[in-house]
Design a protein around this nucleic acid. Sequence first.
DNA 1: TGAAATGTTGGGGCG
DNA 2: ACGCCCCAACATTTC
Length: 440
Amino acid sequence: MTSVMWFRRDLRLADNPALLEAAADGDVLPLFVQDPRLWGAAGVSRRAYLGDALRSLDASLRSRSGGEGGLQVVRGDPVRRVALAAREVGAARVHVAADFGPYGASRDRAVEQALAEHGIELVRTGSPYAVSPGRVTKADGSPYAVFTPFHKAWSDHGWPAPVDPPRAVTYVTVGDTADVPETTLPDGLSLPTAGEAAARRRWRSFVDERLADYGRDRDRPGIPGTSRMSVHLKWGEIHPRTLLADLSEADGAGATTYRAEIAWREFYADVLHHQPETARDYLRPQFARMAYDEPDELFARWQNGTTGFPIVDAGMRELRATGWMHNRVRMIVASFLVKDLHVEWQHGARHFMQWLVDGDLASNQHGWQWTAGSGTDASPFFRVFNPVTQGKKFDPDGGYVRRWVPELADAVDPHTPVDPIVDHAEERREALARWERIRR
DNA sequence: TGAAATGTTGGGGCG
DNA sequence: ACGCCCCAACATTTC
């Protein structure tokens, strides 16, 4: 019996329980549906990265099938396309890793229904998380709203060990397999290497070379102190379980800090699962009553990295050039948009999702809500980052700013603003005044 | 996973 | 020697 493995954001063969389930049924049709609803919202970087990741998966599958049986890529509404593919190979089961995002979850319910009309079952095995959203709850069954107790309960809950890739599977395709779409990158844009093997190599070198100092270096955008796993986690080229298994063999503060970062990712997925509307709406509704400014030319200056605040401009330019931005700098530019320009977080979140190759809805939206003060367990609104102080503190030699803002390459003090679009001290007072009006 | 304002302390200059 | 002031350094409070 042939079954379908429908890949979505789990583009790997190793440590993939859903794929093992599919392989247990017999031959496997590996399927990817290019969904216009998701594809259309993605910026050029995300589309290009996803294309690379799919080609890499296709190559892995082919190398295990003597050059045949690569990834079957189809375009269109998954509700129609998945059922069509399953019927073509006479599958009784379609295997997936569960999707807990607002769109993905409802899409899967619709696909499940469409499949059921043909007597085909949608089988969900595993998820992109060590502990699936909804599984960690307080004693009374309600979800956690504060990170620290969630973190503890999540650790206590535990997770299974990684599983091996399936052996001796025959991968099949049917009909015409569309090519994975090629996306031409504009000049000056360079993306990380995609694929399962690249993800594992990168992780290995992080553990060997950087993990011990992670606690110290993770906040320094000028040095390669972070793991850069976000994009691989986003597309499932590596599973957090794999990372956690390696971390449990490492000790020291670096491993503990890194594990907590994985827990933040799972916490935000849990929060979004329980409150899907928070992908758009303020989690604390009183923040919707605060006075904001409409995005205008200052917003455009933020987007293209010409605010005159060096660390802000460096971050925004890094984002456009690489599809990624250092986490410390994400917080700084987010604080600047919300508290210096008084623009609602949703505008910033949308810009991030368009450009980030690692753009994950739960982490992105709730990271923004954290900065905006409106999220669960969020930063208090009165914590206003001073972009100059932050720059000096976390990029003390100016290396990061010099790299991404070349006109400052030879500046004596590269963190001194040049033609700043706002007066930070003034806008800080303004932000606090607006917040004062919605308090309590 | 802040920053600025305000408060406190203690060393040292100086009459 | 003493009191006074200044102010850096640190601590606490406030937003």
